[in-house]
């Protein structure tokens, strides 16, 4: 196919990788936004989810926030934030949108993970005289670990995707290569940019899968206890 060879030519042209519009610079922006927003979202969502899960309150909130996150189009939120007074403040609209869409998977998975902990184990810990804080740190968190990591993984993939979309309203990141390709009607550049984005997303997902396998000996239930719920 002609497109394949032209895409390869685009990718193997050194000048496309350097400079302010180059792949390396865009990749740097993409990674910076992803990591920064993921850290902010974790700092916001995980303590709330762990506390709610420990107390057994706010289950409806945790589930509904996840559904709301699905129903609200990312693209719409990006554009709304851009047109809002925040729009004049550089990357802030993008950062806020990224954090907003990373919170639901983090919150829901961590909450479900905390609730899935065997009540008998928690009661036993309480019977041994552990305080609430000790139960969270030594019993509930270790047992909820796979769910929490799954939440972080979903959030990371979500953030990578949303960062790509942020290129439409003019944000940085690899998505800009795609949008610039469309503006120039350069299909090879569009496909090359899309390939880079897809590879990045898969690498992020893969890294988390490996981390999850490596770090956690308690993987229970086959399949993924994440946003794609079994009924």
């Amino acid at each position: 196919m002609d497109v394949v060879s032209r895409t390869w030519t685009w990718l193997s042209t050194g000048s496309h990788w350097t400079g302010a519009e180059g792949v390396w610079h865009r990749l740097g922006q993409h990674l910076f936004l992803t990591v920064a927003c993921l850290l902010i979202s974790c700092a916001v969502a995980l303590p709330v989810a762990v506390l709610l899960g420990h107390l057994g309150r706010g289950g409806a909130l945790a589930v509904n926030i996840s559904n709301a996150g699905r129903a609200v189009p990312t693209f719409a939120v990006l554009v709304l934030l851009l047109l809002s007074p925040l729009g004049t403040h550089g990357s802030w609209p993008t950062v806020i949108a990224l954090v907003l869409f990373a919170i639901p998977p983090l919150l829901t998975n961590a909450y479900v993970g905390m609730r899935e902990v065997d009540r008998g184990v928690v009661e036993a810990a309480r019977g041994m005289g552990m305080t609430g804080r000790q139960i969270v740190a030594r019993v509930e968190l270790p047992l909820a670990f796979p769910f929490i990591v799954t939440g972080i993984r979903s959030a990371a993939v979500q953030v990578v995707a949303t960062t790509t979309l942020a290129a439409l309203p003019g944000g940085g990141g690899l998505g800009r290569i795609i949008t610039a390709g469309f503006r120039l009607t350069d299909t090879a550049q569009v496909v090359a940019g899309a390939l880079l984005v897809a590879v990045l997303a898969l690498l992020v997902e893969g890294a988390f899968v490996l981390a999850q396998r490596g770090l956690d000996p308690l993987r229970r239930r086959r399949g993924r206890p994440d946003g794609m719920e079994y009924a």
Binding site: M1, V197, A198, A201
Partner: peptide
Amino acid sequence: YTVPSLAMFSLLVP
């Protein structure tokens, strides 16, 4: 499912 939507649509354009 992991492939971002913008990339997915772009890859299908050709």
